[in-house]
Design a protein around this nucleic acid. Structure first.
Length: 293
DNA sequence: GGCCAATGCATAG
DNA sequence: TATGCCTTGGCCG
């Protein structure tokens, strides 16, 4: 469930509280025991996010790749250097959850609760990983291959990222619906089901319009909006796509996501929900009509 | 206690 | 297009 903003927050958290330190690694659940052994006692060098992939590098050339999938999450706890314990990943309710820190002194990590695939631990605190769809160690070559599969990430400041997104969407082969392309991590990395629905609504685009038929200006606007919304998500720790005045008047943080059956915030129509490629797609039939360009 | 959905993706047919 | 992965919390009994 986490989208790109969540993974970038995780990378920041790891860089803040783990980088440059030796870490103990274990797999209380047992499903990553052999991998945990390979990083146990190593120096954690740094963490990087690309789209929904989290990469954590260690001082022996191996890189941990973690993908949270639908329901993965990390829990953190430790002393004051952790700036409070938190949980970052799949929210169990709408909106991301960040637990308040306990005021008591740090006396080591608690016994693992539930299915903890990987626990990383320093003298200052710990991180528990549950429910990832991917947790594996990569060689340098494998890391390069993983990253090569990903499209541009709106949260990474590559100079030509927007142009790359435009080429990917407008390519002749991109005859498929723009709603599908936005979820394709080789087209753009980091957008998930909420951001794709909200981006299409905010830009007045029919979800079924083929990407290759969009106006270049529309594609540029979509990219700029993705950069804005994902950055807002990193800052807020949750996905907020409505504007402040609208939040005050309606209480809604999103325009269409999980608002099916409710009235559109911009027109008299009712927000609809359907399935596309096995995922729920939310949209306003009034604001997102075919041929809005 | 069981069932289901969830911000995802890989693989099979 | 359908199924599996794999975990938790909410809901229903």
């Amino acid at each position: 469930m986490p989208e790109g903003h969540t993974i970038h927050r995780l990378a920041r958290q790891f860089n803040d509280v783990f980088s440059g330190q030796p870490v103990l690694a274990s797999s209380p659940q047992g499903r990553f025991s052999s991998g945990a052994e390979k990083i146990d006692g190593r120096l954690l060098v740094s963490a990087h996010a690309h789209g929904k992939q989290l990469f954590i590098s260690f001082d022996h050339e191996l890189t941990l790749r973690v993908h949270l999938g639908l329901y993965g999450a990390w829990d953190f706890g430790g002393d004051e250097s952790f700036r409070g314990a938190s949980s970052i990943g799949a929210p169990r309710r709408i909106g991301e959850r960040e637990l308040a820190a306990s005021d008591e002194g740090y006396c080591g990590p608690p016994a693992p609760v539930g299915a903890v695939r990987l626990r990383l631990q320093t003298e200052h605190g710990w991180a528990d990983l549950r429910g990832p769809s991917a947790c594996e160690l990569l060689t340098e070559q494998e890391l390069v291959a993983q990253i090569a599969k990903l499209g541009p990430d709106p949260l990474r400041d590559a100079a030509d990222a927007g142009q790359q997104f435009g080429r990917n969407v407008l390519a002749k082969k991109s005859a498929s619906a723009i709603a599908g392309l936005l979820m394709d991590q080789s087209v753009v990395a980091g957008i998930g089901n909420i951001y794709r629905a909200e981006l299409l609504f905010r830009n007045g685009i029919d979800p079924w319009q083929p990407g290759s038929s969009l106006q270049p200006g529309q594609v540029a606007a979509l990219w700029a909006d993705a950069v804005l919304l994902l950055a807002r998500g990193v800052q807020a720790g949750k996905i907020i796509t409505t504007e402040r005045a609208e939040q005050r008047s309606s209480g809604a943080l999103n325009y269409v996501y999980q608002r099916q059956g409710e009235r559109c915030l911009h027109c008299p129509q009712t927000v609809l929900m359907t399935e596309l490629a096995g995922r729920k797609l939310y949209y306003c039939p009034g604001c997102q009509q075919p041929g809005n360009s």
